[in-house]
């Protein structure tokens, strides 16, 4: 029974995840290349030069960035309306629900465990009055929740400031441009923060061996029951409790 699988992601969820990933990657690559200023270049002058050459000019790069941003936004809006009750609201509810006692303990322990191992972690948390066991977590652990919160807030900031920048050339007047100037700066910060979170997310999912089943579930939609029980005990228990009514 050890290979029994439990459903974790819907097809729609898997689609929006990979669609999102592709768009964010494209928008990051093109967005960084839209900065071309010796005092601000995040990666040096060669980067905007190279990417702009691929797009046959910075002006095409700008249009490509806008185009993909609007496609991304449009698909998201459809997803939000279509899946609001079934997918979006439960997700938002889940990631913004935090139980401080349990979750702070989990954060401390997980960070230590991921860097120094279980044994050392158990020793280090003793002075705090904790034992070496990880507190149970729900569908998402608190690390995932905090990252998701950061990504949602950062994503909203990117959409808002991006839209203001886009409108500048079409609607705004000279008196409004301070808004555009600060939008650029906030857009940069939001992109930086979300990219940092995505580095962590990609490491956890694709490189860390512990979370390998979660990575695979982003293709198949299911995780092994053993994995669910070990990593997301509260969710697993819920699943088990609701089992009888699962039929039909």
């Amino acid at each position: 029974m050890s290979s029994r699988q439990v459903p974790r992601h819907t097809r729609a969820g898997i689609f929006i995840h990979w669609f999102n990933a592709a768009c964010w990657f494209f928008l990051l690559v093109t967005g960084v290349a839209l900065i071309s200023n010796p005092e601000l270049n995040p990666l040096g002058a060669w980067y905007p030069k190279a990417v702009r050459a691929i797009f046959f000019g910075g002006e095409n790069l700008l249009v490509a960035h806008w185009l993909v941003a609007f496609i991304w936004l449009a698909v998201w809006l459809v997803y939000l309306f279509w899946g609001m009750n079934r997918l979006v609201a439960p997700f938002i509810n889940s990631i913004f629900t935090i139980e401080p006692n349990r979750d702070i303990q989990w954060m401390i322990k997980k960070n230590l465990q991921m860097t120094v191992g279980y044994k050392m972690m158990a020793r280090l948390v003793k002075p705090l009055g904790y034992d070496g066991t990880m507190p149970d977590q729900g569908y998402y652990n608190v690390g995932q929740k905090l990252a998701a919160q950061g990504l949602i807030i950062g994503g909203l900031a990117l959409v808002g400031t991006g839209f203001i920048m886009f409108t500048s050339k079409y609607f705004l007047t000279a008196a409004d441009v301070w808004l555009v100037q600060w939008s650029i700066t906030v857009h940069f910060i939001a992109a930086g923060v979300t990219t940092a979170l995505l580095i962590l997310h990609i490491y956890m999912a694709a490189i860390s061996s512990e979370e390998r089943p979660a990575f695979i579930s982003m293709f198949t939609g299911t995780v092994p029951a053993e994995y669910a029980k070990h990593h997301h005990r509260l969710w697993y228990d819920e699943l088990e409790d609701s089992k009888p009514s699962e039929v039909g």
Binding site: P42, M114, G192, V193, I199
Partner: peptide, 22 residues
């Protein structure tokens, strides 16, 4: 913003490398 984002990236990089090393 620029130095702040660089520090954040650096910290994240160090954290990920520490986890990878472990």
């Amino acid at each position: 913003a620029d130095p702040g984002v660089k520090v954040l990236m650096g910290l994240m990089g160090v954290g990920v490398l520490a986890m990878l090393g472990k």
